[in-house]
Design a binder for these strands. Structure first.
Lengths: 262, 262
DNA sequence: AGCTTGCTTTCCACTGAGTGAAAAAGAGAT
DNA sequence: ATCTCTTTTTCACTCAGTGGAAAGCAAGCT
């Protein structure tokens, strides 16, 4: 009776070789960046021999690499390929100079995020201080409500997404998170009128932020935010350079147009 | 030394499914970021039906995505995974604050590169100016000799690499490239004594640079450089903050130690 | 309209690449 | 020394993956 399937009961071990290989790659995460063969075997539900063989092939292609001790980790080839991805390709590359300029003017932590399915995704974070509280990792998804960049993208985004998010129960990450749909809806309206969003301790206690949308041809493609961890109520004094940066990115994206990732 | 054995005539079409899938992914590049099924079929030598099927699986895993018109491009999943890679994980993340600080002080373009096999590889480039001559792309390899960061890593690197590079014929990218091994060797010695390298129009005509090494436990792990395209002979006035940044990164890497990628 | 060209997608009988249990070979622990 | 938990190799079986062929699409040309 080794029917120790996962919580759902459905054990979708893929039979396709490619899907299995991708499944193995998918096991690595920020919290577990390196794993042994048997760990991977257990995590995926695939036999050790199979994992062993597939890892060998992935290693040959530099998609994984051995990490000194018996562990494997994702290979540098993935990093190289990541640069050719729509996320990097245009958005980040176009935005970076503007973000730098903003960071230069404000000397605060500057964030850049995009709407990604059911969450806001941090693409870049610029901090000048060497000692940083690593609250938000690049590449990690954040809830729509609660973060400054999330709220502003929700506010300027399409009605369908807004309704969907507001229809679901809103998780309370701190006592100050806006969980009442009515209150949140009013907040979003205010943001749309003001042109930028603010938040104070709504996701991480003790952090304040302000964010503006990057709108290309009428649709939100990203958001620029400024954060700090001093509950600095005066962050709004940066609204002018913030909006300037966001609009600069918007204009530049419209100029260089072509097809935008997505 | 594995060079690109991707010649058109000799096509060692791999029989392993995984290798084929990785081969397909490998076709995408900075110059051809998106391709159609039949283009990929031709480039890889695989039958269209096979490419079609494999692309379907890769798409399901978000390793590729459709790009509006009938084209495919690399998927955002690759970008996410790239962040978990040793290249990003520690090096870039540790260096970024120092690079920002340097950029802030100098207001010039700041580069960050690592030694990668037979070339220097740009990991990051920070430019504050919105209009940038895109001379050096992040992720693209550059010759050891000729670039400031390359020379400084060569100068402080191990003797074996130095001898190997100096043993091969040195490509002349501009009239000012150092192609004579004796001259280059003397230059490297001078760099080692001075602690940083300078170059003027040795790779791209009209560009000047200055670079310092990031040395951890005696071995070169990266280099920080400042470049501009004004043939600004006075770039050396930034040597002090440059060395400061490079040493700051070194120290921080030694502190957080653990195993360094590679 | 038709004809042509070049692409994507579906179909399906065949078969060898991929499989995974089991055994062998290491690597620590106690 | 013997357990225990790893990684690696082996090998006979078989079903996942194959790819030629054909059907579907979409432009472009006459």
């Amino acid at each position: 009776m080794t029917a120790r399937d996962d919580a759902e009961g459905l054990s979708p071990v893929p039979k396709s070789v490619v899907a299995r290989a991708l499944l193995i790659l998918g096991q690595f995460s920020a919290t577990t960046p390196s794993m042994t063969i048997s760990q991977l075997s257990r995590a995926t539900g695939l036999p050790v021999a199979t994992v062993f063989r597939l890892l060998g092939e992935l290693e040959a292609g530099h998609f994984v690499q051995r990490a000194g001790n018996g562990q494997f980790r994702l290979g540098n080839r993935l990093w190289e390929m990541g640069l050719l991805t729509p996320l990097h390709g245009r958005l980040r590359e176009t935005a970076l100079p503007f973000l730098l300029n903003l960071q230069y003017k404000t000397r605060e932590t500057v964030q850049f995020a995009i709407p990604n399915g059911d969450a806001a995704l941090y693409i870049e974070k610029l901090t000048h201080e060497e000692a940083v509280p690593h609250q938000s990792r690049i590449g990690s998804p954040m809830p729509w409500h609660g973060t400054g960049v999330g709220k502003v993208m929700l506010a300027f985004g399409d009605e369908a997404t807004r309704d969907e998010v507001l229809g679901q129960p809103l998780a309370a990450h701190t006592p100050d998170t806006l969980v009442d749909p009515t209150v949140l809806r009013r907040e979003l309206l205010a943001i749309r009128q003001r042109g930028y969003s603010t938040s104070a301790g709504e996701y991480v206690a003790g952090s304040t932020s302000i964010a503006a949308p990057v709108i290309v041809h009428g649709v939100v493609h990203a958001a620029v935010g400024i954060v700090n961890y001093r509950m600095d109520a005066g962050l709004e004094r940066f609204s002018e350079p913030l909006l300037h940066a966001a609009q600069g990115i918007s204009r530049r994206l419209e100029d260089t147009d072509g097809l935008i990732g997505q």
